[in-house]
Structures are given as C-alpha cells and as structure tokens.
Write a protein that binds this DNA or RNA. Structure first.
Length: 573
RNA sequence: CGGGAUGUGGCGCAGUUUGGUUAGCGCGCAGCGUUCGGGACGCUGAGGCCCCGGGUUCAAAUCCCGGCAUCCCGACCA
C-alpha cells in the first residue's frame, strides 16, 4: 500500500476525549474514529489489525474443532423472553422494532439463537458433540462506555458454544477451548493469566477469565508468584489460618463507646489496631439472620458468603432490614448475638488473641472476647476479600494483586439454555436429555486495546508482527541530489519486489519531509522499517530498523530483498 | 442513574470572569518560493449555524433558563 493514497491522517496532538494510552494512540495513528459514545468507525489500518486478530482467532477455533457460523445481529425478542434474559439484560440491550411492531434485540450475545439452531437440527447422541462459533458484532448499551475500545457499545466478539451429551463431554470441550484461548492470546503478543472466576449462584458451573495484565485494567485479580494459582477478586481465597489457642485469656470486659462510628475510631479509643477488632456482618439467609465474622481490617467477600450457603437465598442486610429488626443493634453486633441462626467465621478469627467486638447493645463494645469461651461459630470458611501478602491457598507463598483487561471468558453453562430452548437429544436407550452446554467469548476488538497498552513507547504503537497492519514500513528519502530519481526508482523496485514476494508492505512515497515520515513510521508501529535514502544509496545500502528494539542495521541494496524476505519467514514461524 | 468537567473551522486550544468593531492562535488543508535523513521556513489563501432552543439587552461565543452531546469518578461485562 502506498501512503500517498492510503486513507489516513495521523494526528500530532492527543485527542481531547481520550484518557488511556491505547485510545490516544489508536486515534492518533488513524486506526479508529469515534462516531458516538462507545461506537467507532474502523479506518483501513485499524481494520487490517482487526482482521488479523480475527484470523488468529479463527485459525485456533478451527484447529480446536469448532465450526464457524454467522448468527443474526437482529434477534427476535421472543427468543429472549423464552430464556428469561429479556428481563435480565434489561436496558443493556439495544431493541429495535420492525414495521409490523415486532421487537428485536441487537445481539449482546447469542446463546438463545444458537441453542435454538442446534435444537432444530440435532436430536441424537450420535450428533454430539458439536461446537459452533462466530466472529460478529455485539451490542451492549453499557452504562458507561469507556477507554476507547475497552468498553464499547458496539464491539467485535468471538463467541463459541459447545453442545455435549454429558458433563465429561463438556469438560473435554471446555478444555479444548481453554487451550485454544491460550494460543490466541500468546500469538497476539499479550501477557495474560487465566483466572478462576466466581461461579455464581448456579452451583457446579465453572468459569475462567483470561486477563491481559495492564495497569489500566478494569478488573483486579489475585495471583501467586510461586505457583499457577490465579483468581479474580470475587473468587480468590487464601490459605486457612491454623488452629491456635489464647494463652491465659483475660476476663471479658465491657466498654462504653458512644459516638464512635467506624472500626478505626473505636480502635483508636482503645489504643488497639483494627486487626484486633472483629466485625460481625449481618446477612439474610432464607429470612434468618446470619453473621459473617472477619477481622476489623478486612472486608467480607460477599460471594464467598453466598457460596457458603449453597441453594439458599443469601443477601447482605440493608438499612431496611435493620429498620425491620430494631432488636438487632446495628454496629454493635457481637459474635455471640443470640438472634443469629448462623455464625460463619473466617479462619483468621482463630488468631491467638482475644477480640474486641460489638457488645450486642448500642454504644458498647466488649474486650477480651475469646473464641471457644465466649463464642463458637456454627461454620468456618475463607470469607475475606484477599489482600496482597495473603498466603496462596495452594502453596502458601505471598499472593499479589494486579489489574487486567478481560480479553476472554470460558464458561461451563450446563443445561440452562438447552432446557429453555428445547435442545434435547435421545440417548442410546431412547431416553431424552438436555444437551450440556459451554460458552466461550473473546473480545476481538478489545484485544487491540490490550495489545497497544502492552506494546507501545513514546514514539507510538509497537505492533507484534502477528497482528501488525503491515510487516514492513518502507520509507524513501530521495533527497535533492543528482541521484534522487535513482533512489526513488530503487525504492519503487524494492516495493514491487516485496509485494511480489508476498510481504505486506506499506510504502511511504509521500513528498513530505523525512522527519514526518520517520515520526509517522514510529507512530504507526510496523515491526520493521526500511529506509531507502540518498546517502545509503550512494553506498549501495538500505537501512533497517526494528521498531520494538530500535536496533538498526544496513543491508546491501542488491541483497536487501532476499534478506527481508528471509527475516519475514523467521517472523511468521 | 448519582457526582465532577467540557462543548469555539478537520484536530488541539485561547477568548466567556468584566457583553461592544471584522472571533483568534498552533497543527492540518490549498497555492507559490526557499528547504530536504527525525514532526523545516516565508508569503498568500480556503475553511466557523461559537452544541441546540428560548430569554434578557441597542448589542450575546460571553449573562439567564431549558435541552442535547462528550469525557472522567462509582454500580454491569468480552
């Protein structure tokens, strides 16, 4: 491609509406332009990268045995009513109405459509398994679109759906997708971690997120430096505290603590630290009061509490709940509060010291509240939000917390959709069963943001070769000397030869100053820059610069073509 | 949906507080000339519903009211 005719205008200044580096660079490098909040046009360079990423995804999906389909973006809303997700998605879905007043959802995802499709075609155990995927635009009317391509309302997503006869089959399908995802993100040049995600209310489901490590990431995740443990903050847990005993416990003592809102104030008043206090957080479990006990310096992981009561309805007490139960002394609940049906304690409550706790009456705390003597939990668990330095549940090493961009998510769905949409099969004995499903998403357009966040420098984007819009950025600097025409001709010849050899090459044949050409070459970020200039030409060489490292070398003019082609072969391997 | 900010040629901004000739600067764009290996320079020029609607006033980019849009901080997700 010749830059003289490429539809591109690079910008010197950062766009005013961009906050993060990847967004600024994508706009400056002419990859995308905003049309509305969270909705972008893709210009030629951006489109090529998008296509390259999609192609990698396609190859790995095909390789893993999935089959590509294309499902509709406009989906009858009736389908969504059947699964109950019309309500669940609510305002998140764009809805459109046709001339006959029928409503359609603009696909935020495609479980309903694909399950209906499979239900209509397949009905025997002999048909299974099958895994269908598509790479298509998705629409979600996000509360707050953000950070350019990171949180869009229109985005390109790869979504795959597996259908198996049983859980063992699902596990195999899931594992195949999991492996494929690792290959995709590795090929795209991302540093990532597969992170255990919270399974949610539906027991038995497992789910993992692929997080591209990035400071601007919207999600925090916990990971271990020593082993491969990694989990998002909701799902993360830590090594249990060992059993200990309190030596020579002092007698329990009640203290008047009026007008002391918050743990820190009470701690200061008692010359203690927050970790010596105990919080008793009230939950409603099937209409009964449950207490979650954690040290004063820790937060309760609500998801962990919910998981501790499988099959029950669990929610945090609200102000309305406290209003309805004036006998519960909000802020002064102790671990031995009589009205509690369940007392779930974090293992850290086993620490070898007495606790400062609520005294079960307003404006009072108790000191020297001792486990076993003064209170006995009905259940133990790991229910605090993990903090940096906590011990890894697998190997006890220190855990770390980093931020990441969720670029992929694999999920074992079970039979939720196959039941709702009637995707059943007949087994070898003539009995009918719902198919067992998994679903697997990759944020294709989001990958571009993640890659640029990881691969850029002061000069601009540094594309990994696998997804770069072009492999070689050929710059000609003809100068004004006698050999200007020859230099130009040599560059033209090299351009033609590279193209003939199948190398994707962007040729800066514009009549602009060298400074502009070099600055644009760095901004656009092709992996290899080749300069055919008057000075080098006079000595029979062209210059090569590796964008990522800044490394430069010279190639003899007459063998440059072969050298570049050879280098491309190495890169593409 | 709460909280904060912004809206002025394609892009980045000044001007608004204190209303007053023809709305200005940089980049970009067009023409001419001088330059030519890391975002050169001079001259000339094109390009503006000053977000929209209403109001106040002799007079509004500027003041008042009402909208809309965009961005940032919080609750959802690939």
């Amino acid at each position: 491609m010749r830059m003289s005719s490429l539809f591109l205008r690079t910008l010197r200044d950062d766009p005013a509406d961009a906050e993060v580096t990847s967004h600024k660079l994508m706009v400056r490098a002419g990859l995308i332009r905003r049309v509305a909040s969270g909705i972008y046009s893709w210009l030629p360079l951006g489109n090529r990268v998008l296509r390259n990423v999609a192609q990698i995804v396609r190859e790995e999906m095909d390789d893993a045995g999935a089959q590509e389909v294309t499902l509709p973006i406009a989906q009858p809303l009736d389908l969504w009513k059947r699964s109950g997700r019309d309500e669940a998605y609510g305002q998140m879905m764009f809805r459109v109405k046709d001339r006959k007043d029928n409503w359609y959802a603009m696909a935020p995802t495609a479980e309903e459509v694909v399950t209906t499709l499979v239900a209509g075609e397949y009905s025997s155990h002999r048909d299974l398994p099958v895994n269908l995927y598509q790479i298509n635009w998705k629409y979600r009317d996000e509360l707050r679109p953000r950070f350019g391509l990171l949180r869009c309302r229109e985005f390109l997503m790869k979504d795959a759906y597996s259908f198996d006869a049983d859980l063992a089959g699902l596990q195999a399908s899931y594992d195949a997708m999991f492996d494929a995802y690792g290959k995709v993100f590795t090929r795209c040049g991302l540093t990532f971690r597969a992170v255990k995600a919270q399974s949610g209310e539906i027991g038995g489901d497992t789910s993992q997120e692929f997080m591209a490590v990035a400071a601007i990431g919207e999600d925090a995740f916990v990971w271990c430096e020593q082993c491969d443990y990694a989990a998002n903050t909701e799902a993360a847990t830590r090594h249990p505290h060992p059993e200990t005993a309190v030596d020579d416990p002092e007698p329990r003592e009640s203290i008047h603590t009026p007008d002391m809102p918050g743990i820190d104030v009470v701690a200061e008043h008692l010359s203690a630290t927050a970790d010596l206090l105990m919080k008793a957080i009230a939950f409603d479990v099937d209409g009964q009061l449950a207490l979650a006990l954690v040290p004063g310096d820790r937060e309760v992981n609500e998801y962990a509490v919910i998981a501790a009561f499988p099959g029950r309805s669990v929610r945090l007490y609200t102000d309305a709940d406290f209003d309805a139960h004036p006998e519960i002394p909000k802020g002064y609940i102790g671990p031995d509060f009589e009205g509690a049906a369940h007392v779930l304690a974090d293992s850290s409550i086993k620490a070898p010291h007495g606790w400062i706790t609520g005294a079960n009456r307003v404006d009072h705390h108790d000191r020297n509240v001792v486990l076993g003597r003064d209170f006995t939990p009905t259940a133990w668990g790991e229910i605090v939000v993990v903090a940096p330095g906590d011990q890894c549940p697998n190997c006890s090493s220190a855990l770390r917390i980093d931020r990441g961009i969720e670029v992929g998510h694999v999920f074992q769905l079970g039979d939720k959709y196959s039941r709702a949409m009637g995707a059943v099969y007949t087994d070898e004995h003539g009995a009918n069963h719902p198919m067992v499903m998994g679903c697997y998403g990759i944020g294709v357009s989001r990958i571009l943001s993640a890659v640029i966040e990881e691969h850029h420098d002061d000069g601009g984007i540094v594309w990994p070769a696998a997804i770069a819009p072009y492999q070689v950025h050929l710059v000609v600097i003809p100068g004004r000397g006698d050999n200007a025409a020859d230099v130009l001709a040599a560059a033209e010849q090299l351009y033609a030869d590279l193209r003939a050899a199948g190398v994707d090459v962007l040729f800066d044949d514009r009549e602009v100053s060298p400074g502009i050409k070099f600055a644009d070459a760095d901004l656009l970020g092709m992996p290899v820059q080749v300069t055919v200039g008057a000075k080098g030409y006079a000595q029979g060489v062209v210059e090569r610069k590796i964008r990522a490292t800044g490394e430069r070398d010279e190639l003899a003019l007459d063998t440059a073509l072969d050298a570049l082609i050879a280098a491309q072969r190495t890169l593409s391997r």
